[in-house]
Design a protein around this nucleic acid. Sequence first.
RNA 1: GCCGAAGUGGCGAAAUGGCAGACGCGGAGCACUCAAAAUGCUUUGCUCGAAAGGGCGUGUGGGUUCGACUCCCACCUUCGGCACCA
Length: 748
Amino acid sequence: MHPIGWDAFGLPAENAAIKRNLDPRAWTYDNIELHKASMRRYACSFDWDRIIRTCDPIYYRWNQWLFLEFYKKGLAYRKNSMVNWCPSCQTVLANEQVVGGACERCDSVVTKKALTQWFFKVTEYADRLLDDLELLEGNWPSKVLSMQRNWIGRSYGAEVDFAIEGRTEPVTVYTTRPDTLFGATFMVVAADSDLAAELVSGSTAEIRMQFQAYLDEVKKSNDIERLATDRDKTGLDSGRFAINPANGERIPVWISDYVLADYGTGAIMAVPAHDQRDLDFARTFGLGVKVVLETGEADPLETGVALTGEGVLINSGELNGLSKAEAISKITGILEKEGRGKAAKNFRLRDWLISRQRYWGTPIPIIHCDDCGEVPVPQDQLPIELPSAEGLDLAPKGTSPLGGAEDWVNVPCPSCGKPAKRDTDTMDTFVDSSWYFLRYLSPNSETEAFSKEEAKKWLPVDQYVGGVTHAILHLLYARFFTKVLQDLGHLDFSEPFTRLLNQGMVLMNGSAMSKSRGNLVKLGDQLDEHGADAVRLTMAFAGPPEDDIDWADVSPSGSGKFLARCWRAANDVNSEVGVDFSKGNVELRKVTHSFLRDFSANIEGFKFNVGVAKLMELVNALRKAIDGSVGPADPAVREAAEVAAIGLSLFAPFMAEEMWSILGHKPGVALAGLPEADPSLLVQDTITAVAQVDGKLRDTFEVSVDATEADLQAAADNSSAVQRAIDGREIAKVIIRAPKLINIVTKQ
RNA sequence: GCCGAAGUGGCGAAAUGGCAGACGCGGAGCACUCAAAAUGCUUUGCUCGAAAGGGCGUGUGGGUUCGACUCCCACCUUCGGCACCA
């Protein structure tokens, strides 16, 4: 099954439609037709009966079904938090859609905003998403695996409770270095955390004012500024004190933006001697530095470089003398026993924010009732179709345009019947693409998202192809969905894509094509100029499929020449269909059959460029045979031409079909199938043996395939080139790999 | 800072540890032609040499090996990802 569909909801389509003052619906469906026509022109052999469009209600009603399944399991939830906000798209963004502090779509600088939003609980699957990457090792590009590992970012450490003076509850911090607990000389709390505000509220009026000013500063800064390296540490003293549970020392509590509110507990124990960031902070504000791990490095206070190496614990009470690993395990045990801490792990991964304040997406199937709260839309009311765009103001304004569709928004509560309102946000389009591969199994079903039976038969996907841009977006989300659906009993496998190929891009003059750069190469123009076959062949021949191709470096006209050469060769064949190949010229037959062996291996190994090269070699041999003593009537010539046509059908279907017809066959070269290579024709009579002296090639000779070591030795003895290279030196050793190689090692 | 990948002719690229550069682009030459185009053939890593024949050559430096583009270590460069994640 090789299906095709359109992931058609989302911002780009909506923005393009708004710009042209069109209904996103009309714009999208028109473009699907255009796109489809150009793909057909390019002769893509998809299964055109299994088309999906994610913006069809018949598709997205199952997004809504899935949402409700997740909701039932507690995997879809709403919370208020600081979220990524794109001021240009006027919508929130998932963490995965913020690239280097900018919006993935429009490159605007992303800011933070406090909003109540829908999330999918990816973090609940963090361990499995990470551990199951093992299953993909070797079949997915290692780059994607490492990007996912990086993104999920699991770390192991401990949570430690610090008592706070004047506060009943202790504050818990997360650390990966509990061994350095005795070296904690202050605590830092994230400036934008609730805890910071609370601690300051119990402090002096002056500190409260300072804090407010600092917080305003922090909130103004955006991600780009935050990401700037070598940024000076900022912060302020909260005026409060904590007690180091290891040694009872009274340590100040500071507030800074270098601690993140949404990672760990939003508060850290600072060990400046052994953490660079803490050291930078301590040096800026003149806080204490206490070395607790003797690593043999110079004093961090003087060098400004924290000690992060291995060593032996010092100044640490009962931990003294232990190694880092021993100390981590011992102190964790002690804290657990005393009920003041425990082993813990943390993830970089955050929950997936899926609500969008835009029109062109799947409506979230929840109704908000003043009395009943969030009420799921009953199954029999699905799909909740998008209201018509007519009369709605689609321009980005920070709240969903669906809010303006009053007839649509105002509905009775399914639970109590009182007037209630639909949720007006739409889902992130990555929800659509997280399960579409399942939908191909039954693209038109009105009774189920996908067929369990068909899934058993077809899935998981054997070979997935996609850009590396999806490494931590689509590919992570699709893996998450698959695992959830497995847990819900809808699927019996845990990984959706068995093998993954990241195809490269077509560049022009060294960079990705873009309108603004003006380095656009239009497929349509190339097809007009060279034809689909030549363009396809050029793509395949240019290099490995995972590499980028610079269109400036390739030669579609060269491909055209090769195709013409194939066509002429087919025309020159001068024998009848069905002629007995076994009577043909053996030399040419050997070429044809070793092609059959090599070509299949190349194609199956995704080395299409090498496959094309082999095809060229075959056609070159065919040309020589026709023009030379073999002649166009030899059965081997027909055999080679037919094999070439079948091989070519993978890359240049039109020319291959033409050749097939010229060769007197009924249409259907693509279905002909490559014949098996005849083993008897793969056997070589002679082979080129190489003779080396001290590992350097000195001579080659044609020898029989069953040449013995003695034969090779004799040949080397008779070779003047070999003898000249030995130059009378004493022979130390002779390595012979009959029949291919002899290496004579001389005493130096 | 951390993680990862890649460095081979003028260019795109090939090469189970065993003839480096297959195949193609570009270049040069020859044939066909009145001529050109098209086509076919030859040639084309660098370098010394008239030639025969040498030397050098897969980012750099080491190592393993009879033998390294390939395996190991260090470094350089480029690209990609993450990044104040405690």
